[in-house]
Each structure stands twice: as structure tokens, then as C-alpha cells.
């Protein structure tokens, strides 16, 4: 039973990882861009929510009303002012600029919030759970995170396949040059993609902060989880990214069940196994 429990909790944890990964997956899909500071932006969202709750006493979930639009705007500005300048044939500038950003952001957060470990208190939601069968109970919060992940991905699919903006984003992913002939400004489309990604990053950050402890240094590890979920799931496929997150969460929980020190290690090993046998991931839609 404890194994079944580990797997079920792993699936739910995978929902959080899918939230981490969605923004990364989306930005790569539209503009073949990988943001090394992705994990640090998740932690920034966590700290933003933390600051808001401590200042106003808001419920952590309510902070999303502020944090998500602010991060989306910041993402738009960051893309237009800095990241767009790094795009091109050479892979060095985007990698190195966002890597520099990652180090800068971690240390700015360290200065602002110290290295102390924090957590968002969400009251009754934190401990509420219900028993499915004897020996297997599901926490309301982990379940909520999972359902939100599904809802986010479903909504994004609706945006991509049902709206004009989504059409432009997919067309840009196909062919950045020809889409200009449709009157689309690449710089603006890229920034919209980043804004959407940052909106999801905010959701991921707030739920991370409600589920676990966080401090300024844990961003890079979140980037790696997000990255693993994207690669396992296959590039350019958000449902694949959800599947990748779930597989990663299950692998980690099975590892932890064997020995607490194996949790993250098992996730990495599954990721490495996937690149060994299927480097394009489980459900790829676009080529790297």
C-alpha cells in the first residue's frame, strides 16, 4: 500500500512539476529559447506572494490576482528589452545572458529576503485531506495543484488552437520569417509568449510556496525539474509536458520510498534513461 501511496503522491507532485515546466515548454515551442533563469523566476513569484501575504494578510491563493499579471508584464518587458536581443543563430547569447540573470536574481533575493527557509501558510488548506481507501489519503492542496496544472494546460491549448493570438504563436513556431508577412512583429509575439509563460510561472511559484519550503537558492533545481519534464514529455507538446511531470514526480517518490536520499536522484536517472532510449521524449511535436 505504501508503494501505491508513493505513486499516487508522485502523480500529484507531477502536477506541480508540470506547472514548473509549462512556461519553459511554451517559450521553447514559440521561439526555440531556453531560459536558464526560469527556476529563479518561479522563486521570485514565491517571494512576491510571501511579501504580499506578510504585508496584507491575504490568502496565498488571492495573491495570484496581483502576482500573475505583474509577472506577465515583467516577462513581456524582459523579453522585449533584453531577451529579444539575444535571439539568433548563435546559442551562446540566450544561454549566457539568462544564466547571468539566474545568478543575479538568486543573489538579489538573498539580499532582500536572507537565506532563511520560508513557506506560505494557507491555513486549513494546508493540512486538509481525505481518505480514498485505508492507508491511502490524498491531500486537498496537492490535488488542487494537480487540477490547476490540468486546467492551465487545457486553457493554454484552447488559446493556441482557438484564438487569433494562438494561431500567431503557432505560426511563429513554424516559421519566424513568413509570419512577418502576416503583419506580425516577431518581437511582440515573442514577448507575448514570455508573458503567458510568466503568468504560469507565477501560478507555479505560489503553489510551490504553499506546498514546500523555499529559499533564494532553490531556483536552479526547479529549472532542472522543469527541464526534465519538458524533455521526457517531448518538445512542443504541453500534454506531453504534463505526462513528463507526472513521470518525474512518480520516479522521485518511488526513489524517496526506497531511501530519502534517492528522491531527486531517481528523477535524474529516469531522465537520463529517457535520453538514452528516446531522446526526442515520449510525445514530441516539434524537432529541437
Amino acid at each position: 500500500m505504501e508503494w501505491i501511496n508513493a505513486i499516487v503522491q508522485g502523480v500529484l507532485l507531477g502536477g506541480l512539476y508540470a506547472l514548473f515546466a509549462t512556461g519553459l515548454s511554451l517559450m521553447f515551442g514559440v521561439m526555440r529559447f531556453v531560459n536558464i533563469a526560469h527556476g529563479d523566476f518561479i522563486i521570485i513569484a514565491a517571494f512576491a506572494a510571501f511579501t504580499l501575504t506578510s504585508l496584507t494578510g491575504m490568502h496565498p491563493l488571492a495573491t495570484l490576482i496581483v502576482v500573475a499579471p505583474v509577472l506577465a508584464l515583467a516577462g513581456y518587458a524582459n523579453q522585449r528589452l533584453i531577451l529579444n536581443r539575444t535571439l539568433g543563430k548563435d546559442i551562446l547569447p540566450p544561454l549566457l545572458v539568462t544564466f547571468g540573470m539566474s545568478v543575479v536574481l538568486q543573489n538579489l533575493m538573498l539580499e532582500a529576503f536572507t537565506a532563511d527557509s520560508r513557506r506560505l501558510q494557507s491555513g486549513a488548506l494546508e493540512t486538509a485531506s481525505f481518505q480514498v481507501i485505508d492507508g491511502l489519503s490524498i491531500g486537498v492542496l496537492p490535488l488542487l495543484v494537480f487540477l490547476v496544472a490540468v486546467a492551465v494546460i487545457w486553457s493554454l491549448q484552447r488559446v493556441f488552437y482557438g484564438t487569433g493570438v494562438g494561431r500567431l504563436l503557432r505560426a511563429t513556431s513554424d516559421d519566424q520569417t513568413t509570419v512577418k508577412l502576416m503583419g506580425a512583429n516577431n518581437a511582440h509575439i515573442f514577448a507575448i509568449a514570455t508573458a503567458i509563460a510568466s503568468f504560469v510561472v507565477a501560478i507555479a511559484g505560489v503553489f510551490l510556496a504553499m506546498r514546500t519550503n523555499f529559499d533564494p537558492s532553490i531556483g536552479p533545481a526547479r529549472l532542472l525539474f522543469a527541464f526534465e519534464a519538458v524533455i521526457i514529455g517531448g518538445l512542443g507538446n504541453l500534454w506531453g509536458t504534463l505526462a513528463g511531470g507526472i513521470l518525474l514526480g512518480v520516479a522521485q517518490n518511488i526513489g524517496a520510498q526506497i531511501d530519502p536520499g534517492f528522491q531527486v536522484l531517481f528523477g535524474h536517472l529516469v531522465f537520463l534513461a529517457i535520453i538514452a532510449v528516446r531522446p526526442e521524449g515520449l510525445f514530441p511535436r516539434i524537432k529541437a
Binding site: 487569433g164 494561431r167 500567431l168 503557432r170 505560426a171 513556431s173 513554424d174 516559421d175 513568413t178 509570419v179 502576416m182
Partner: peptide
Amino acid sequence: FPSLSVEENLLI
């Protein structure tokens, strides 16, 4: 655009 349908290609 390969990932767009005929109609979407026209609409864009």
C-alpha cells in the same frame, strides 16, 4: 504554416 489548417492559414 505546417501546424495550421487550411482555414487557419487563410485566417492568419
